[in-house]
Design a protein around this nucleic acid. Sequence first.
DNA 1: ATTATCTATAGATCTATAGATAATGC
DNA 2: ATTATCTATAGATCTATAGATAATGC
Lengths: 203, 203
Amino acid sequence: MRLTKKQIIENRKRIVDAAAYLFRRDGFDAVGLADLMKSAGFTHGGFYNHFSSKDALVEEACRASFDSYTTRLAASLDASPEHFAKALKAYLSLAHRDDPGNGCPTASLVADVQRQSACVQAAFAAGLNTYAAILGKHLSKSLPIADAGSRKATTRERSLRLLSEIVGAMMLSRAVKKHDPALSKEIINASRAHAAAESLSGT
Amino acid sequence: MRLTKKQIIENRKRIVDAAAYLFRRDGFDAVGLADLMKSAGFTHGGFYNHFSSKDALVEEACRASFDSYTTRLAASLDASPEHFAKALKAYLSLAHRDDPGNGCPTASLVADVQRQSACVQAAFAAGLNTYAAILGKHLSKSLPIADAGSRKATTRERSLRLLSEIVGAMMLSRAVKKHDPALSKEIINASRAHAAAESLSGT
DNA sequence: ATTATCTATAGATCTATAGATAATGC
DNA sequence: ATTATCTATAGATCTATAGATAATGC
């Protein structure tokens, strides 16, 4: 049964979507092509009708993860000023912690990406830059105030620090979730309390 | 050729040390037993005279990484008050970024640990708790001041946030190091500038 | 001192699984 | 697109060997 071009494109998208989910949930190397194709509703062998190698899919899935995530984030933040605080609360939540497959690509892929090809690393770096730019755009709406050390932090510095903190908190929280759920929550809440303040005034 | 007991213990330690280095540098799953044993100066087959499985070594190496790292850190911090700022500067440095094999076990293993056995996750959680306790002990020497949002952050909250931030910054910096070295440095420096202030007054 | 035993080692091998390819079918 | 197959590599197992250790004997 030969498929229409439209159907082929649709099938390909199904594979990329499955990959974007599974790679974020389990990591690039932990997901095999057989399981991935099965999850997309196909058999193993058909993979190479769409991609030249696993690496090619990894790159595309990485890009797709960032695209959908940052697009949605930017739209939400542009909607109204108070959405910044809401977005931070949503980020630092148990729901986000427990659903990495649909969550922040940075937190899910940051460690894995170092073991991937140059193309994948480039896609990741591009996504991260976009991410930081979006944060910076909305942080700049609040005036930078003096640091405790009596120096002014630029908006760029503040957005990168905020990114480091929320990504770090999410990863740490996920890592101890099973064995130490109390600590897992504590990590998220520690940053959550501070993030609300950060979104208003900046420190 | 049978060895003395002392030599056997020494050989076992060589394997654990090699593992503690390679696992932190490349990740648990990316390091094969053949390469690991070769790196320790042995051949593949001898591995099972020392460990029942790879998982058993992963657990021991995880513990060993945390032990050596936190012991050294605690000793340094106890030496004198100004060592706290020094330790933070050393953490947020290019030297640390470029030597994960001897660096912070948390930053190296946090993502991998989720795919490992319960024993390994327990070892990680224990190490992280020790880590946070050490930071807390030294943060408590400086008085907590009001957050921008006019609430007081506890020492515990501050140590967890600090941990999230420096671990996150290190991971992000490493992830984009190859493809975007400028951003990599920027990430480290953004947190470095703030960390100095944090170590004195707390925000 | 001699003998028997124990065991870490090297190297070959087994089994499972991964990515990738080829042949087949609609 | 499916199915079967190929190839490489991983963890794990097995066997023979060497030589330290323990038990025995003088």
